[in-house]
Design a protein around this nucleic acid. Sequence first.
DNA 1: CTCCAGGGATGAT
DNA 2: ATCATCCATGGA
Length: 319
Amino acid sequence: MQLIEISAPDFDLEKTLDSGQVFHWERVDNGFMGTIGDLPIYIEQHRDLLRAWIADSSIECLKQSNSMKPAVGGAVAHYFALDHSLENIRQSLPRDRAMEAAKEFCRGVRIIRQPKWECLATFICSSMKQVAHIRQISLALRKRLGEKRKISDRIVYPFPSPERIGGSSEKELRECALGYRAKNLLATARRISNGEVDLERLAILVDLDLHDALCQLPGVGAKVANCVMLFAYERLRAFPIDVWIERVLRENYFPRTRKLNVARLRRFTQEYFGEHGGYAQQYLFHYARKNKVAGGLGSNPSNKCRATPRPSLHDKTSA
DNA sequence: CTCCAGGGATGAT
DNA sequence: ATCATCCATGGA
């Protein structure tokens, strides 16, 4: 075991890992066990300091660079986006009532930089699933198809490659509780593993083109594309609209608008929340989910007393 | 038991 | 273009 310390002011590890953007970190002792890419790692936060432990076996793989600790420290800092100026980002967000409450609640929450395939695959599995179950699916996939790694006396499973998932079967994926999502995950994995699509190369595209390219993949629509853009492609303007966020937007910004199509909602989010809209979205999402409120008036998602049935979400418009 | 979940694809208006 | 329906599965 090797300890690396990283300075991390204005950062909340626990809230960040619990905010529904990443699904494979497990609470262990006073910290979290997980992986950054293929690197198994255990991380604790002590005020403005992160303490990360990696296995001695991981060090062998990194021996080529004679400066192993700075490399790992840099990888951790990059993954958690410790370079984002949350002060500037908060400053750039709107100052309405809902946003202010979310900002305060989400102090220290960062949009992390996830590996592209891991993020894409996980969000393909996320459709019509609660956060708890997405975590369960991620674990099942990693246990079933991932390569077992040891750190101290614990075992972790990095996310399996496109080749590994593409080389499995729909039946095997269904056994990971993916249901109808298995077909989509398999098809997308194969498009990537056979070289038809290169997720790294898509990074050169501008937002609109990246959004279109991602939506070509089976199981990827506007919402998942925006999640992947935000969490894996550093597109901080991307604003995924799921059922929670749709409720938040309706109740806070369009309290009594009858006909509010998704195109109009999307136009509003892009203009109103601006260049760091993804942060606004994540803060509003996490605040609403953790406090079981959409608006500030104690309304909640399981409210049975709404006058009209909640319209279904068809988020087809381009970002 | 019922209801719903960080939706997408498809087919009918 | 917009809307309805179906798709598996498990937590609440």
